[in-house]
Nucleic acid binder design. Sequence first.
DNA 1: ATAAATCCGACAATAATTGTCGGTTTTATT
DNA 2: AATAAAACCGACAATTATTGTCGGATTTAT
Lengths: 137, 137
Amino acid sequence: MKISTKTKYGLRAAIYLAEKGKEQGFHSIKQIAKSENISPDYLEKIISKMEKAGMLKSQKGAKGGYSLARPAKRIKLGEVVNALEGDNYFVQCLSGKGKVCAQCKKCAAQNFWQKFQEKLDSFLDSVSLEDIIKNKF
Amino acid sequence: MKISTKTKYGLRAAIYLAEKGKEQGFHSIKQIAKSENISPDYLEKIISKMEKAGMLKSQKGAKGGYSLARPAKRIKLGEVVNALEGDNYFVQCLSGKGKVCAQCKKCAAQNFWQKFQEKLDSFLDSVSLEDIIKNKF
DNA sequence: ATAAATCCGACAATAATTGTCGGTTTTATT
DNA sequence: AATAAAACCGACAATTATTGTCGGATTTAT
Ligand code: SF4
Ligand code: SF4
């Protein structure tokens, strides 16, 4: 049960953008990577995922870059984590994707994992990027 | 952010033992593996870890096997998860093991991950094996 | 026209997880 | 005493996931 470095990098990038928020404009991968000490090539993939998930917006070409798609207050951590950790269901029986585990009928664990996941999701959705940069949560 | 199958298997084995609780005596890897449809060789390694962590006790030799080391009520899920997921710190800066991340000083994410980890741990420690088999939590 | 950036997919390197195996030791039963 | 059933242990193989790199294509401000 770990957080991937991908997600950790992604969150730091998002925080970077949230902090720069007031100085409107776009911030390039290069800038962010340098400031956060992350491989630019890898960071690009990460940020690209976040952009596709709709939390960042991009500007191509010279002077381009990325910025938050919305005010930091309206970007919840759940969004960041979901975008980067992928289909993050704890157990397959909760994924809703066809395949049911052979033990499903007699499995007492199922309800527990479900509740665990709910707890977790609700916490992640209760914290926004703004909360983080203001250190209030 | 996934639960490893190791942990899922381990929990199911623990639940198995908790359910059989009243019929005192030991239950072999073979039995558990068959009932839960898990590779016996793999399950052995998993159960061995749990035994070393002190939540199971073992009896060697013929008619031997495993049982819970304590009443199900006093085995919390946190114990199971910790034993099997290993050193499960979300971020290295929280591991307390020397190495500090280069970004540590200016990292706004740190507090968040810490709080997240606490939430998680406190939930896991609030649920016992008994709660699970009685489906009350 | 140029340079700076996003965008995209393929791929390589590394690490972690999952699973297998062969043997040793212990112990209840016969 | 012999046997069989089990835990115990470490090495290793197979598979999968993560992390990271690269080369080029496209877009756009200057
Ligand atoms: S074993 Fe239980 S919790 Fe795991 S996938 Fe199957 S039904 Fe779900
Ligand atoms: S980047 Fe921040 S949260 Fe991650 S290890 Fe470093 S100090 Fe901790």
